[in-house]
Structures are given as structure tokens and as C-alpha cells.
């Protein structure tokens, strides 16, 4: 399968998801279940993508775990996205030096 085909499929699906509600639907969603489902989807998606994958994202599980713990603690205290992401990388790097 050509990589260009994959990229085209990704792009078209992603664009349609954004474009259709932006141009066609003007009414608010009525179904409480559907509204709730859509509300929780981003958190569920990001959580499933992060765990357990984050522990295999660097050379060693220990370095990755250090990055994950630092990210969770800093995010808990509400630091900006960039600070959390950068600190996770730094923690993984520093831990990597000791292994």
C-alpha cells in the first residue's frame, strides 16, 4: 500500500469531520447520551493512546516511566502543555543517562 494513499485517506476523513458540522449542521445536538459520549471521547482517546504506549516511547522503560511520572505530576498542578511535554522529555533524558 502506498504511503500517499494512507495520507490521502487520513486527510480526507479528518477534513470531513471538521468541515461537515462547520458548514452543514446549525442545530444543537439534542440527545443527552450522544452529547455525553462526544464529551468524553477526547479524554478516552488520549488516555488509550498514552497508556501503555508511553512506557515504550523511549529507549528504556525506566526512562519512559520517569518522563511519565514527571508529566503526570506537572499536569496535575496545571502547568502549560509545553512545559509538561518538555519536562517529560528532559526527565526521560536525564534518567536515560543513569541507565
Amino acid at each position: 500500500m502506498s504511503i500517499a494513499v494512507y495520507i490521502a485517506v487520513m486527510a480526507v476523513v479528518t477534513y470531513l469531520i471538521r468541515m461537515i458540522p462547520f458548514t452543514v449542521f446549525r442545530k444543537k445536538i439534542k440527545s443527552r447520551f450522544l452529547k455525553s459520549f462526544l464529551y468524553y471521547i477526547p479524554y478516552a482517546v488520549l488516555s488509550a493512546m498514552t497508556f501503555p504506549a508511553i512506557f515504550f516511547a523511549t529507549g528504556s522503560a525506566a526512562a519512559a516511566a520517569a518522563g511519565a511520572v514527571v508529566a503526570i505530576v506537572l499536569a496535575y498542578f496545571g502547568l502549560p502543555l509545553i512545559a509538561v511535554a518538555a519536562a517529560a522529555s528532559l526527565a526521560a533524558y536525564v534518567m536515560g543517562l543513569f541507565i
Partner: peptide, 21 residues
């Protein structure tokens, strides 16, 4: 390799920063 490995965790760090608060 040590640096690019460590940077590979960055996106996951951002995902965590979005879901935790």
C-alpha cells in the same frame, strides 16, 4: 539516540497535560 529517544515522549507528555487537569 539518547536525545531523540527522550523527545519521542513529548507528544505523550502533551496528551497527559490535556487529560489530567
Amino acid at each position: 539516540a539518547a536525545v531523540s529517544d527522550a523527545l519521542g515522549i513529548m507528544l505523550y507528555g502533551m496528551f497527559i497535560a490535556i487529560i489530567i487537569p
